[in-house]
Amino acid sequence: MSVDPVTRRPRLAAAAQQTATLAWRTLLQIRHNPWELADFSIQPVLFLLLFLFVFGGAIAGTTADYLAYMLPGVIVMNMTFVTVYVGHGLNTDLTKGFFDRLRSLPIGPWTPLAGRIIADLVKQGWCILLLLAVGYLLGFRVITSPVAVLGAIALVLTFALAMSWLMVLVGVIARDPEHVQLFGFTALFPVTFVSNAFVPVETMPAWLQTVVHVNPVSLLADAVRGLLGDGDVLMPALGVLAWSLAITAVFAPLSLWALRRRLSRG
């Protein structure tokens, strides 16, 4: 008995290949729109230079001392902000009918979303490496090991994956890509700046320190500092992993439910 290839559900290997193809499709869009990479290249470098040379002397006394403290914070801040583009790209695909066209093909129902998230993780990996390279040119030195650097990158991308689910939900429920950016950045600004990413927590009011200590951005910044330089790694890293699991457990099911609901309404 023959099986209709259109209705047959793809096997896991085929779904993985489809995910890779759709991720590559997202990455290829950079060739047609190079400015898309600016948010992952020019913007983080500008943040690094501005924070370093404008605030470095006032906060740490010298730019060299501030660079060692601030570079991990910039990496974490930029990772948090660029997750908005997961939701932005997803909303663009939804509003332009890309998902509707894919529904007529024999592909896994989750592969377009997985392809989008993986492509953005690749872009974020590029951004982290770029910031480390620029930091090296400015005088930043890793005093741990290559394994620790890989661990820092993996930890940042793990939290980025968790935050991507939040932005997927925003991308699904927002009316258009502009509202994704509006809602996304509005939510992420206080989370990012009410942290120790740029200033030591000891300089803040006592009531605010309590919030900062449990902020996942603070925990991630501390873990990255420890992995690249000197400081505690285990407890901040465990905190980041706990937050990542919690965020994923809440927003992944909500995002998938909202996506299925939006697609079912056509």
Rank of each mutant, 00 (worst) to 15 (best):
D4K: 10
V6Q: 04
V6P: 03
T7Y: 12
R8M: 11
Q17P: 05
Q17C: 08
T21D: 15
A23K: 10
T26G: 04
L28M: 00
Q29I: 08
R31H: 14
N33K: 14
P34I: 14
L37H: 08
L37T: 09
D39R: 11
S41K: 09
P44T: 13
V45T: 05
F47H: 07
L50M: 12
L52K: 01
V54K: 06
V54R: 07
I59T: 09
A60W: 04
T62I: 12
A64Y: 14
D65E: 11
D65Q: 12
L67V: 04
L67C: 01
A68T: 13
L71S: 03
T80A: 02
F81A: 00
V82Q: 05
T83S: 07
T83E: 07
V86S: 04
H88A: 06
L90D: 10
N91D: 09
D93C: 13
D93Q: 15
K96V: 08
F99N: 14
R101W: 12
L102V: 11
S104I: 14
P106Q: 11
G108S: 13
P112F: 09
L113Y: 09
A114Y: 05
K123Y: 02
G125T: 10
W126Q: 11
I128T: 06
L129I: 15
L131V: 00
L132Q: 01
A133W: 13
Y136S: 01
L137G: 06
L138H: 05
L138T: 10
G139K: 14
I143Y: 03
V147Y: 01
A148Y: 05
G151N: 12
A154S: 15
L155M: 02
V156M: 10
M163W: 01
S164Y: 06
S164P: 07
L166E: 02
A174L: 05
A174V: 14
A174D: 09
A174Q: 06
Q181C: 07
Q181S: 09
L182V: 11
F183W: 15
F185I: 14
T192R: 03
F193G: 15
S195Y: 08
S195E: 12
N196R: 08
A197W: 04
F198S: 04
V199Y: 13
P200M: 14
P200N: 09
T203Y: 10
N215H: 10
N215M: 06
L219M: 14
L220W: 00
D222M: 08
V224S: 01
G226N: 06
G226T: 10
G226V: 02
L228E: 01
L228I: 06
G229V: 12
D230K: 05
D230S: 03
L234V: 12
M235D: 13
A237P: 04
A242Y: 01
A242R: 00
W243S: 09
W243I: 00
T248M: 11
A252Q: 11
S255G: 03
S255T: 07
A258N: 15
L259N: 05
R261C: 10
